[in-house]
Design a protein around this nucleic acid. Structure first.
Length: 414
RNA sequence: GGAGAGGUCGCAUAGUGGCCUAGUGCGAAGGUCUUGAAAACCUUUGUCCCGCAAGGGACCGCGAGUUCGAAUCUCGCCCUCUCCGCCA
């Protein structure tokens, strides 16, 4: 959510940003509603003032008559005001955040590669896909998954089940040692959490709704963890708050029915460790924290000995709340491409406004800035682990960092 | 799932239609005193909106309603607690 003051003063900037993000908004309508709203507010305030004075001198002749008149005017005025507010709020909530100046304008073609790390493996044999490797070693059961769970259902078995558990635990431990607060977050969330983090109204098709109650399944721990501090006023000295959050994640993947239907790439249910930061309203500090979040996820991929690249994402590739985004893509041999495994964003105060998260800074209160980045998401990362670390004899090496926790250093046929 | 109790300015409490411009205690901040501190005493102490300002308005869980007037009465919702039942 952008503040109405900001929109009033930066109409062109906001219009340009929406255009570059390829979202449609009606700024003239918004500014017109805002003007009407303020006029109405002034009117009803002076009526309230009169009402208050009147209520204190009840015996005054004619007070009752005038009181009734005021009551009626206030009722009408409030009715109109509520209607206006709702309309304005609806439109306002659809205005996307404004990207930072360094963000390239355009779609996928405008994304900028910032760096790559590691060597893309060159196999002197025909490498197997993670699906073939899984069959060979009985690691994943997609057929029974589909039977029991439905489309895109899966079971992880044997060493894959252990490996996933270990990766999640190891990541959580690693970031906890860096001073992040470990937290296990609920995946069942109310609509305000989804709306507040900016998943809604845009991503409604992407989220599972439970029955007809106010209960949804979050697609990322960003939702519950950011909403944790909704309606809070934090102390400046306690910021930034850094979390390493664990949660199961649920995504409907609406609109991608034909896409990535094979294997572990696109699933309705997966497990993720997410880094979430709630910090001060200071863009320089936010950029430093953004780099820190980036550093963390790269260290994880490096320890897993996986080649990756980092992209600065273009305007049309960004989510509505985001002002700066890096994607980190890990090499997946069977796809012959770097594929998205982490996404690192600064939201500015967009989410904090919607969720009402503030901090006290001297005499005033300000909205916080929020950031988040994936730490690890599995099973997707298993694709890279299995495929990149496969050997000529069909066995799969476990990265040194995970061997002790796994209790095995290789997945072999025997 | 059944039965009951309750949600008041950071915390704890008072408040049962106009004296509430929400009192009191604790906590916090500033000051006096002190070599320094403690104690004591004094002062201050929420959020949001409109406005250049002066000032005004809203908020007692949330939302409707009754009334000239609502923290207080009515209805709906949300949440918390206690007991019973069920359950990892």
């Amino acid at each position: 959510m952008l503040s109405i003051d900001f929109i009033r003063e930066n109409k062109e900037l906001v219009a340009e940003a929406a255009k570059n993000k390829r979202r449609k908004i009606d700024l003239d309508k918004i500014l017109d509603l805002d003007l009407k709203r303020r006029e109405l507010l002034k009117k009803s305030q002076s009526l309230s003032e009169e009402k208050n004075k009147l209520a204190k001198e009840s015996d005054h002749e004619g007070a009752r008559e005038r009181g009734k008149e005021i009551k009626e005017s206030l009722r009408k005025s409030n009715e109109e005001q509520t209607k206006l507010e709702m309309e304005l709020q609806t439109l306002l909530s659809q205005v996307p955040n404004v990207p930072l100046p360094e963000v390239p304008v355009g779609g996928e073609e405008a994304n900028q590669e910032i760096k790559t790390w590691g060597e893309v493996p060159k196999f002197d044999f025909t490498p197997l896909s993670h699906i073939e490797l899984s069959q060979k070693h009985d690691l994943v059961d997609l057929a029974v998954g589909a039977k029991v769970s439905g489309f895109r259902g899966y079971f992880l078995k044997n060493q894959a089940a252990i490996l996933q558990t270990v990766i999640l635990f190891w990541t959580m431990q690693k970031l906890t040692q860096k001073g992040y607060t470990p937290i296990i977050a609920p995946s069942i969330v109310r609509v305000f959490s989804l709306f507040g983090t900016g998943q809604f109204p845009w991503g409604e098709g992407e989220v599972y709704k439970l029955n007809d109650e106010d209960a949804y399944l979050a697609g990322t721990a960003e939702v519950p963890v950011t909403a944790y501090y909704s309606d809070s006023i934090l102390n400046e000295k306690d910021l930034p708050k850094k979390f390493v959050a664990f949660s199961p994640c649920f995504r409907r993947e609406a609109g991608s029915y034909g896409k990535d239907t094979k294997g572990l790439y696109r699933l309705h249910e997966f497990w993720k460790i997410e880094q979430v930061i709630i910090g001060k309203a200071d863009i320089e500090e936010a950029k430093k924290l953004h780099e820190e979040l980036q550093q963390n996820c790269e260290e994880i991929l490096q320890a897993l000995e996986l080649p990756y690249r980092v992209k600065l994402m273009a305007t049309a590739e960004m989510g509505e709340p985001q002002i700066l985004k890096y994607d980190t893509d890990t090499w997946m041999p069977s796809r012959e491409a770097y594929c998205e495994t982490m996404s690192n964003s600064i939201m500015g105060d967009f989410q904090a406004r919607r969720l009402n998260i503030k901090y006290r800074s001297g005499e005033s209160t300000k909205f916080c800035y929020t950031l988040n980045n994936t730490a690890i998401a599995s099973p997707r990362i298993l694709i890279a682990l299995l495929e990149n670390h496969q050997q000529k004899d069909g066995s799969i090496n476990i990265p040194k960092a995970l061997q002790e926790l796994c209790g095995f250093d290789t997945i072999s046929h025997e």
